[in-house]
Amino acid sequence: MKYKILFYIIAGLLFVSPVFVLLLQSITTPWRFQTAQEMNVQLKSFAVLWSDPNLWTATIGSIVIGAFVLLFNFLIGITAGKALALYSFKGRTLMEALLLAPLLIPVLAVAMGLHLLMIRIGLADTWIGVTLVHLVPTVPYSIKIFHHAYSQLGKPMIEQAQILGASERKQFLTVELPLLKNAIRSVTFLTIVISLSQYAITAIIGGGSVVTLPMVFFPFLDTANPSIMAAFSVWFAAPPLLMYILIEGLLSLLPYSQTPWRNRA
């Protein structure tokens, strides 16, 4: 009990306090500690933010691209992670190294090479091309996370479901997915944050036609108003939070989920 209280205190100091200060900064005039400046509440910073004509387009575009990037990460990460963790085949070590290789190569170098390919196949300056290039810095992490999750799950657990007569679909939905919830949460948050923060590769592949939040955010760096920057940071943090809440809602529908509404008699 003592360690639990200590954990909440440390978490509050390291995570909750900075978020509270950021929210406070976004709705007040610029101020500093230990000065005579008054803290006046205002919403001008959000008004300036909402006055940008590309804000809503960039927000919706970032959410759509992030959702598809997350979906592809689930499909590739689960299948590749499961194969690497549970099956033995020739060249498995080499295959794992190749799948993780994008982490060792600068993303800009990959984007410049892929840009020529995107132009040839007609995906340059499209959100589909941006979605595909966002897989480069995200998929290796997803594969590694699901690889570790399936290694902990173990092959005997899956073989037990097969022995009891479960089909592959039922085995995946009732055995694997419920036990992969922590990995799914990690992949969700990591993928959305990485995808949302990509500026250079989005500008290269999107060619300025695909507008995302980072492309709207950088012009605001010219301002010295900390309230406006804080307001944009709050807005920037909303899409990952909404996506995380959505995934949590979907995870609550899985079998054996410890949720009050499912356990109600």
Rank of each mutant, 00 (worst) to 15 (best):
L164G: 02
G81W: 15
K144E: 03
A85T: 06
V187M: 07
I143N: 13
T174Q: 06
L135E: 13
K144Y: 08
V139W: 09
K144L: 12
Q152K: 06
I201P: 04
L104Q: 02
A149L: 05
T126R: 09
H147C: 03
S195L: 05
M112A: 03
I63T: 11
G206A: 15
L103E: 01
I121N: 02
V139Q: 05
A183G: 06
F74Q: 13
K90C: 01
A149E: 14
E159G: 01
A67T: 10
H115E: 00
L71D: 01
V64K: 12
I201C: 12
K181P: 10
I204V: 07
M157V: 11
F74A: 07
M112D: 00
L75V: 00
S88V: 02
T126N: 02
Y150W: 11
Y87W: 09
G129Y: 02
V133Q: 11
P178G: 01
I143W: 14
P137H: 08
M118L: 03
L132A: 04
A124I: 11
T126C: 11
T79L: 08
V133R: 05
L173V: 05
L94C: 03
R92W: 13
Q152R: 06
L86A: 00
A200F: 15
K181G: 07
F189Q: 13
V136A: 02
L153P: 00
T138F: 00
L86N: 01
G91N: 04
H115Y: 04
K155E: 06
Q171T: 02
Q198R: 11
L123C: 11
H134F: 11
F146A: 11
E168V: 07
V139F: 08
S88N: 02
E168N: 09
V107F: 11
I119K: 15
T126M: 05
E96H: 14
M112R: 14
T202Y: 15
I204N: 09
R185D: 03
I121M: 05
G165C: 12
V64M: 14
A166S: 04
Y150K: 13
I184N: 06
I78Q: 06
K82T: 09
I119P: 04
V107H: 07
A203I: 07
F172C: 04
T191S: 10
L117N: 10
L99Q: 08
L98W: 09
A109L: 10
G81Y: 07
N182A: 02
P102F: 05
P140Q: 07
V133Y: 05
K170D: 03
S62Y: 08
F89Y: 14
F89Q: 09
T138I: 10
G154S: 08
L153E: 04
I192S: 04
N73I: 03
T138H: 09
A203M: 12
L94R: 14
I105C: 04
L135T: 15
A183M: 09
L114N: 02
I143K: 13
L132K: 07
L100S: 06
